[in-house]
Simulated assay, not measured.
Amino acid sequence: MDLLHIIALALLQGLTEFLPISSSAHLILLPIIADWQDQGLAFDVAVHVGTLTAVIIYFRRTIRALIVDWFKSVAQKQTIGDSKLAWAVLFGTIPVGLAGLFLGDLVETSFRSPLVIATTTIVFGLLLGWADWQGKRIRNENRLNWFDVLFIGIAQAIALIPGTSRSGITITAGLMLGLTREAAARFSFLLSIPVIVLAGGLKIIELIESQLVIDWFALCAGALFSAVSAYLCIFLFLKMLDRIGMWPFVLYRLVLGVLLFWLFT
């Protein structure tokens, strides 16, 4: 990989991981459209480490409170402070963990088609727009009940299909349940942490077993650029969300989906 490829793919991962436009779709499509060689497993691991680092740094105070209160709740066997939200993040991760365990190979082989991505980009983009339009936007993430968490968790599992967008479909589910835009986005970002850890852990195991020759410069540069772009993306997205809403992303998804149908049919 030359430096241009490294920077382009890392920035793309960092920007699209947390925007509701599907990072997996963009990482699949860019090498196809630009006629680049596939970036490989090791680079995927590096850019995921970068985005994980960004979300942990951004939410470091919240994460610290969640961890402390979770341990207190376990020790005292009652709800303490933010422990309910911590349990919600853990519980909401179970559906995607099970789906990845049983359907991961199918997703990796059968659903990486540009036409699948075009379809999911349009369908779930329209669903995001509908949820943003119809949502009551009166609740925050601390008022989620266990049915709400399960609903968002199942939505997150659907995002294993490329083009769906993990952040997009979890924000959509949150809006459908009456969360404010910012609350839906915050819960989506917190929910991403165990998911990225699980996905990155599996990729690291695959990487170790593959015994590939490692280009450490590419990996370190990819992690750095993805971390910086992801942090800026989270900051700006949450800051501007109430002002711009979801429709810019809906329109982007519609244009992208139509373009993909035009290019690949």
Rank of each mutant, 00 (worst) to 15 (best):
residue 65 A to Q: 13
residue 131 A to I: 07
residue 166 R to E: 00
residue 124 F to L: 01
residue 167 S to F: 02
residue 125 G to P: 01
residue 73 S to Y: 09
residue 106 L to Q: 13
residue 56 I to N: 10
residue 158 I to V: 12
residue 98 L to F: 15
residue 36 W to M: 05
residue 47 V to S: 03
residue 161 I to A: 04
residue 67 I to K: 07
residue 159 A to C: 11
residue 28 I to A: 03
residue 116 V to D: 00
residue 47 V to G: 05
residue 146 W to G: 07
residue 110 S to A: 15
residue 28 I to Y: 03
residue 91 F to I: 15
residue 108 E to F: 10
residue 170 T to F: 01
residue 32 I to S: 04
residue 45 V to Y: 09
residue 107 V to L: 13
residue 30 L to N: 08
residue 26 H to C: 00
residue 41 L to T: 11
residue 42 A to L: 04
residue 136 K to G: 05
residue 165 S to E: 05
residue 36 W to I: 09
residue 29 L to Q: 02
residue 152 I to R: 09
residue 141 E to L: 13
residue 108 E to W: 11
residue 112 R to G: 10
residue 149 V to M: 06
residue 131 A to D: 02
residue 134 Q to W: 10
residue 158 I to L: 13
residue 141 E to V: 07
residue 89 V to S: 09
residue 132 D to R: 01
residue 78 Q to F: 05
residue 144 L to P: 01
residue 43 F to L: 04
residue 53 T to F: 13
residue 78 Q to R: 15
residue 87 W to F: 14
residue 79 T to Q: 14
residue 53 T to N: 09
residue 119 T to R: 06
residue 64 R to W: 15
residue 79 T to E: 14
residue 112 R to H: 02
residue 164 T to K: 00
residue 81 G to V: 07
residue 89 V to Q: 08
residue 45 V to R: 08
residue 39 Q to V: 06
residue 75 A to G: 15
residue 161 I to S: 04
residue 82 D to K: 10
residue 51 T to I: 04
residue 30 L to C: 07
residue 53 T to P: 00
residue 46 A to S: 08
residue 45 V to P: 02
residue 59 F to Q: 06
residue 131 A to C: 08
residue 80 I to W: 00
residue 153 G to D: 07
residue 77 K to S: 12
residue 119 T to W: 14
residue 63 I to Q: 13
residue 116 V to N: 04
residue 164 T to P: 01
residue 72 K to M: 13
residue 163 G to T: 00
residue 124 F to H: 02
residue 62 T to P: 03
residue 88 A to F: 06
residue 54 A to Y: 07
residue 79 T to G: 05
residue 135 G to T: 08
residue 133 W to K: 14
residue 35 D to S: 15
residue 147 F to Y: 14
residue 98 L to G: 06
residue 143 R to D: 11
residue 125 G to I: 06
residue 52 L to V: 10
residue 26 H to L: 00
residue 74 V to D: 03
residue 44 D to L: 01
residue 144 L to E: 04
residue 87 W to Y: 13
residue 89 V to H: 02
residue 44 D to R: 00
residue 144 L to M: 07
residue 140 N to Q: 11
residue 99 A to S: 10
residue 61 R to H: 14
residue 30 L to V: 14
residue 91 F to Y: 12
residue 39 Q to K: 07
residue 157 A to Q: 05
residue 61 R to M: 11
residue 159 A to T: 10
residue 64 R to T: 13
residue 77 K to P: 02
residue 85 L to G: 08
residue 134 Q to H: 14
residue 59 F to Y: 12
residue 58 Y to D: 11
residue 87 W to E: 10
residue 70 W to H: 08
residue 91 F to E: 08
residue 94 I to G: 02
residue 118 A to H: 03
residue 30 L to H: 04
residue 117 I to C: 03
residue 111 F to L: 15
residue 79 T to D: 13
residue 67 I to Y: 12
residue 69 D to R: 02
residue 104 G to Q: 11
residue 76 Q to S: 15
residue 44 D to W: 00
